[in-house]
């Protein structure tokens, strides 16, 4: 029991807020935080240059900011250096200009993460935005994206993110992502299905397949990021990788990965 579910390590997680006293806090173009949370559900980007945003996540901005869909001519070089995934182009926008820009996603909790020559793999539906210092690549685990390099990115989660060190086994639906540790492997708990009660359960179908039977197992040094959810946030399409000999899964298994674009998920409360 020594493996703690501790507080986030330095550099991770949103700041803590004192309980509000008095009336509502009014922000303006100058007092909005620079690259930090406004509240646990809203992140303020101090834009001076470019950021990449998932479509639909910008709620308000001050200043001179233009938004371009991917494939817009002048930014093709930037896109080529930051996107290494056959992403569904319509899901991403480049914000360009100067100002303060607020990001949010269906009132889910928002965290920002700093990477310094690091890498972090995250569920595609949880990623909101990232700075151009990072390169986005498709993870070998379907439905996950890997960010590599130095920079900042912003991600949503259902409830605050909890950081855990391996070894740990995780219900796939509660997994937000992982940093620095090797990719997970599958773990099946066969004892869950054994015995009289398990047999009754198999006969009656009570319960169905659940996280108690199948987990992602993490080992090695690193951090695993967890959220409280069994209703997944909508995945975004990570695109499909053309199959070639040596690719896992075979020609059929490689298509897609996310749960497809579009659709709005349930609200987090």
């Amino acid at each position: 029991m020594s493996q703690g579910f501790g507080p986030p390590p330095p550099g991770f997680g949103p700041p803590q807020y004192p309980p509000g006293a008095g009336g509502p806090v009014v922000h303006d173009a100058h007092t909005l935080p620079a690259d930090d949370n406004v509240n646990p559900y809203t992140f303020s980007v101090h834009l001076d240059g470019q950021w990449f945003l998932q479509r639909g996540k910008m709620i308000a901005y001050y200043g001179q900011i233009d938004f371009h869909g991917l494939g817009h001519g002048p930014l093709d070089r930037l896109v080529a250096s930051s996107f290494h995934s056959p992403l569904h182009a319509a899901q991403w926008v480049v914000a360009q200009g100067r100002g303060r820009m607020l990001l949010a996603d269906r009132a889910f909790d928002i965290n920002s993460y700093d990477l310094d020559q690091g890498n972090l793999t995250i569920r595609s539906g949880n990623l909101l935005a990232f700075s151009p210092g990072l390169a986005l690549k498709q993870s070998i685990i379907p439905g996950f994206l890997t960010l590599i390099g130095t920079g900042k990115f912003v991600a949503a989660s259902n409830g605050a993110v909890v950081f855990v060190e391996p070894p740990i086994r995780v219900d796939p639906q509660a997994l937000v992502g992982w940093a620095d540790c090797p990719s997970p492997c599958h773990h099946y708990d066969h004892s869950y299905l054994r015995g009289v009660l398990g047999g009754v359960r198999m006969l009656t179908g009570l319960g169905g397949l659940s996280g108690e039977e199948h987990q992602f197992e993490f080992a090695g040094a690193g951090q695993v990021l967890l959220q409280s959810s069994e209703t997944l946030m909508d995945g975004i399409d990570t695109g499909s990788v053309p199959w070639e000999p040596g690719m896992p899964g075979g020609p059929e298994g490689m298509a897609g990965g996310g749960r497809g674009p579009g659709g709005r998920g349930p609200l987090p409360f």
Partner: peptide
């Protein structure tokens, strides 16, 4: 059932 998110040990 199904409410386990993760475990150690």
């Amino acid at each position: 059932r199904g409410a386990m998110l993760a475990y150690t040990g």
